[in-house]
Design a protein around this nucleic acid. Sequence first.
DNA 1: CCGCTGGGTATACGACGTACACATCGACGC
DNA 2: GCGTCGATGTGTACGTCGTATACCCAGCGG
Lengths: 244, 244
Amino acid sequence: MAKKEETDDVSLWERLERPAAAPRASLTPGRIAEVATGIADREGFAAVTMRKVATELGVAPMAAYRHVNGKDELWALMIDRVSGELAPVDEISGWRETLRAYALRTREMMLRHPWLAHMPAPLFALTPHRMAAAERQLASLDGLGLDVDTMMAAFRAVNAYVHGATQSEAALRQYMQDQGWQSADETRRGLAPQMSYLMETGRYPTYRRYTHGAARKDDATWQFETGLDCVLDGVAGMVERGHA
Amino acid sequence: MAKKEETDDVSLWERLERPAAAPRASLTPGRIAEVATGIADREGFAAVTMRKVATELGVAPMAAYRHVNGKDELWALMIDRVSGELAPVDEISGWRETLRAYALRTREMMLRHPWLAHMPAPLFALTPHRMAAAERQLASLDGLGLDVDTMMAAFRAVNAYVHGATQSEAALRQYMQDQGWQSADETRRGLAPQMSYLMETGRYPTYRRYTHGAARKDDATWQFETGLDCVLDGVAGMVERGHA
DNA sequence: CCGCTGGGTATACGACGTACACATCGACGC
DNA sequence: GCGTCGATGTGTACGTCGTATACCCAGCGG
């Protein structure tokens, strides 16, 4: 435990920021993350393979291991990279506008990179760009009379909602794409075999009423924003009670 | 496209319920799901392998494929199986108590089976037991004057929160277990190398204030319930406005 | 008694993650 | 200048995975 250093003792994020460590380095964590996310965007999560990343970099399969400890770290780099697409929200607007803007941007970002829905969840914390977004959201809740625990709870509530809602939305989209279904109607037709057996058991009357009578059934944006505003209303209640 | 029938044309869920299809059948989707979830519970998500499931069933590696179309379907069966642990909530209590009870039970169930956090999200819909839970939650929102779209949005908001929040909680727990960390303090010490680099950049002052000064930092149940009540408050607002 | 069908098996292929030993080359002390 | 050393990239190899395909055989309807 004293020899496999350099990718082991110094933090992944330190390595990521360290500028072109050695002169000879044509590979960097940044470049690796770049082509890996490119592959994921174009060909899906499952196509991101150590070997494919390497060939796309014009390099031997094992080369990337000098800069990245394994597939887990590669995933962490990918998550951090796309999290960098979340442009900061200007600080003038109040907490609600700030949280709302981050939520909308996060959703858009996750839909741009649907492979995020397949990521093992633990990696979703502690990357620099994610922490930066968290910091700005927390800061927007500061000074309202909430204690730090409650601030964090509010922040987490919004983010848990955004992740949960967008994960299933992104996953559905990708599933449609995998199956070659273009429209919502086409999807219903494709899902019908699975669905009709369940529905004809007669066990789900309320659900059935929704699938037959809903007007905004296919308006994912309306659904997301309605749920989001609902959560934000709840946070507003906390804020009011918090400094009462 | 006219010969690979029997696992292809009839729905997975129909196969699951069909009682002991043939006389000779010693294998069933139910038994397969049973040992697969057993493996996942004991040894983690990555240990669930077609071959391991087969040997645990005392059967050749390819045998399970007669009953299950591939790993995806196996995962769907596993999800449905543990979703069956969500005991129905009696219908007497109001919508809020019903949704709250399902949320708490869902969290507990997901923490009992932490491998759920690693599941590709698309499979999280459309399994019979999950639809049963959804049906009962929707029914509890029925008759309050909400239109079906809003009912569904409220239901989805709560569930998205529950999934998002519990996924990260379960993932953290499993990560701790993988690393052999027992307590929250031990975890902080283990995470310190990763964390200190980020914190010492000075970019996250509000976040730092939380990690240093929070009282409920390690009370996951408080955090979950606080966020949940927040979302439920938001739903309450929708309900009030909905029949106004 | 025969042949068909459906459950279980045997074999095999290609791809994956990654351990390990090796080659190469820039930079730096002398 | 020159040897050495650490960091960077390579080659080879192993074990494991999902699953296609061809097979075998028990039991049953005729």
